[in-house]
Design a protein around this nucleic acid. Structure first.
Lengths: 149, 149
DNA sequence: GGCAAATGATTTGTATACATATCAAGCCTG
DNA sequence: CAGGCTTGATATGTATACAAATCATTTGCC
């Protein structure tokens, strides 16, 4: 078999795919239609109400254009309110709606539980090691983002 | 900061994003226009000439619809030949063209080197540990695929 | 041999993902 | 305070990703 299929890039892609599928499975089971990106965008607004789109993109390391579309759909679904900033008429200020708050509260436990689905092939200790290494590799390249906790 | 940003799913997404960006950077530097998926699809055909699209999808764990489009673009670029199988008129038999062979040969060293770009925040030993855990987590869920080496 | 189930591929529709270009508004320096 | 640079957002175009439906063919089972 080709060595290409044994490289980090290949397994990272597969893990991402597994992770997204696990999310969709949990969402479907809970009767929600959130995607992983939509969920994390809502979470960004929850932690920083009144944040603008560009700052959401920076916080979760997404492309601005992508976030524009994601926010569009969240506004359409009624989970987010988008208003022109009084301080900067270019910016769109985002806040959670009541429905947005509700779906976040309802779904967050499932998202926490889902992490074990992704790494179900690993022991508890291996999961901790994996998480620490994944975190270190990511932070090495982007130390500033979602800064210190 | 929200705990959501400290979960495996978040770091896996970030690593995938970093991995794809590293690929594009190397491709651009080499003057090629291959994407990660296109590269791995070519590699699948190289290891199994005459493979059909569904088998490519199974080998690299992709959706059939996605692979259809990927193959379309590779055929358009002249890297793959697609012919109707003489054994099964539904299936499309894939083979590398001379240009496809050439670009694979030329670009494979960069793809191997690129793996270190992704995990440049880790030591050699940490990279090995990470790879082993990523592999184990993936294989636990899909033991059959790209089977034993 | 014939018909139902399975399978390879494509079509359609939605949602990322991101590069590039454009527009509007704020800033900054001379 | 004016012109230039920067920045928030949107528009456009390409490429994944995948669900669901459809079509053609083949297989399997009686």
């Amino acid at each position: 078999m080709s060595e290409i299929f044994e490289l980090p890039g290949h397994f990272i892609r597969r893990l991402h795919q597994i992770s997204v599928q696990a999310f969709h499975a949990r969402a479907r089971a809970a009767g929600h239609d959130l995607t992983p990106v939509q969920f994390v965008a809502l979470e960004a607004v929850r932690t920083t109400p009144g944040i603008d789109q560009a700052s959401v993109a920076a916080m979760i390391a997404y492309d601005r254009t992508t976030i524009g579309g994601v926010i569009d759909r969240l506004v359409e679904k009624g989970y987010l309110k988008r208003e022109i900033s009084p301080r900067d008429r270019r910016a769109r200020v985002l806040t959670l709606s009541a429905a947005g708050k509700r779906i976040l509260d309802e779904f967050t436990p499932a998202v926490l539980a889902l992490q074990a689905d992704i790494l179900c092939g690993l022991t508890e200790e291996e999961r901790r090691t994996f998480l620490a290494l994944a975190r270190k590799a990511t932070r090495a390249l982007h130390p500033e983002e979602v800064a210190s906790d």
